[in-house]
């Protein structure tokens, strides 16, 4: 028997709307040519937040055993840390 782990339509709609706004923000930063550590940190934070919504709410891992949240959110943190290291490495000293 499944428990009601998928939330309400209202919550899903609100989250979808915020995801779209966050996407427009990312697109706008690209259009403005935002660059440097601050821009990368902001873009990574937006991407991380969007991913967390997908993982916790859309994939319903908020209601799963903690191990699955650790593995998926941990993957996202690891990927962004590695990307950040590579980008900092490539910045002028």
């Amino acid at each position: 028997m499944s428990s009601d782990v998928h939330g309400t339509p209202r919550r899903a709609t609100l989250l979808w709307a915020t995801l779209i706004v966050a996407t427009l923000l990312t697109w706008g930063m690209g259009a403005l040519g935002a660059t440097g550590k601050g821009a990368i940190a902001a873009l990574a934070a937006i991407s991380f937040w969007k991913g967390a919504v997908i993982i916790l709410d859309f994939m319903a891992l908020r209601h799963a055993p903690a191990l699955w949240r650790m593995l998926t959110l941990g993957w996202m943190i690891l990927v962004w840390v590695v990307i950040a290291i590579a980008y900092i490495k490539g910045m002028p000293q």
Binding site: S2, D4, H6, G7, T8, P9, A12, T13, L15, W16, L19, I20, T23, L24, T26, W27, G30, A31, K50, I54, D57, F58
Partner: peptide, 27 residues
């Protein structure tokens, strides 16, 4: 084409939202 990339992000997010609504309906 950053516009195409952003449009595709919106399309995928919206598809995911529709899938969530489908699962909720099935529930």
């Amino acid at each position: 084409n950053r516009n195409a990339g952003a449009l595709n992000t919106v399309l995928l997010l919206t598809a995911s939202y529709f899938v969530v609504r489908a699962v909720q309906a099935a529930e």
